[in-house]
């Protein structure tokens, strides 16, 4: 796992070897605004799973500092009682500059946990308050965790959320306005969803482990729905394609960056743009053409 996280040269071999072993785990994404209690709910779900005899992988993602590249990964604190739990494997990842709520190596870490035989993999996104759509490409089931009083926030990101979330959880439901938030969500869903899976809205107080069972129940329902409609298999196929595309893009970007750093012709061009002797658009067109020809 260390190899994939640090993009070691042997990563390719490792990943190629494990692909045939993947596809078994139920991958669940948890997204939502900061402070909604994603970590706590993730921890409670993991605990519930191991009690039920299942094994769980947990991936927690936190932002890297844009200045230093370092990161403070604090999610384990909220899952502290799982540190000695043999059925649970937790891995904290930093975004390392990647947008969209995931880390560059999230897919690989999930694949490894899947191949290692984890029954369920819980992926907790950064939680920037933005719609973190990336997770829905990787996960079978996406859970949107929110709290009472964030109604306005939900309104503004409504469209995006309704598209990606399969289950809504109103956490901290002991607070005022929980019922109202749940009702508002349900109304929005009624307007938006036409046929197919109708995302349920669940209330929970994760800090007191209330409602975890109901959330898990909804996850199970969603899984049955996916399997009944053939989407379970489809998601797996899509995921592999998505991984391929992501890797193509990453490799291309890597090559471009390297070329910009190393190719003296390109560096000359960069200097001319910086000096104001060449307009950036013309330069970009030239560079793309140049790189494309050089690569092929």
């Amino acid at each position: 796992m260390k190899l994939v996280e640090n993009a070691d040269p042997t990563r390719q071999q490792v990943m190629q070897a494990i692909v045939p072993w993947t596809g078994r785990a139920h991958i669940i994404g948890l997204t939502g605004p900061p402070g909604a209690g994603k970590s706590t709910l993730t921890g409670q779900l993991a605990r519930l799973l191991v009690k039920g005899g299942l094994t769980a992988g947990v991936v927690c993602i936190d932002p890297s500092s844009p200045f230093s590249g370092g990161a403070f990964l604090g999610d384990r604190v909220r899952m502290a009682n799982l540190n000695s739990e043999p059925g649970v494997f937790i891995r904290s990842l930093a975004t390392r500059g990647k947008l969209g709520g995931l880390s560059a190596s999230t897919a690989e870490v999930i694949m490894l946990m899947d191949a290692a035989g984890k029954d369920v993999i819980l992926v907790e996104t950064v939680g920037t308050g933005q719609v973190e759509h990336q997770i829905s490409h990787l996960a079978d089931t996406t859970i949107m965790v929110t709290v009472p009083g964030l109604g306005d926030g939900i309104q503004t990101m409504k469209a995006g959320i309704l598209e990606i979330a399969d289950i809504f959880v109103v956490n901290k439901a002991d607070r005022e306005g929980a019922e109202a938030t749940a009702r508002d969500l349900a109304h929005m869903l009624d307007e938006f969803i036409t046929g197919g899976w109708r995302p349920p809205v669940k209330l929970a107080v994760a800090s007191r482990n209330e409602g975890t069972g109901e959330v898990w129940e909804a996850v199970q329902q969603h899984r049955l729905h996916l399997q009944g409609t053939g989407q379970w298999e489809q998601k797996r196929r899509d995921r592999l394609v998505r991984i391929m595309i992501d890797n193509v893009q990453a490799q291309a970007l890597d090559r471009i960056n390297r070329a910009l750093e190393q190719d003296s012709l390109l560096q000359n061009l960069v200097r001319r743009v910086a000096d104001g002797n060449l307009d950036p658009y013309a330069a970009a067109t030239f560079v793309s053409g140049y790189l494309w020809q050089r690569q092929t």
Binding site: S65, G70, A71, L73, R76, V77, A80
Partner: peptide, 24 residues
């Protein structure tokens, strides 16, 4: 973190749990 490292903070833990976390 400011020095560019990724720091996983565990809170209060006893040796067995610390080692488990370090492995994971």
């Amino acid at each position: 973190r400011d020095a560019g490292m990724e720091v996983v903070y565990l809170g209060n833990q006893f040796p067995e749990a610390i080692v488990n976390a370090a492995i994971q």
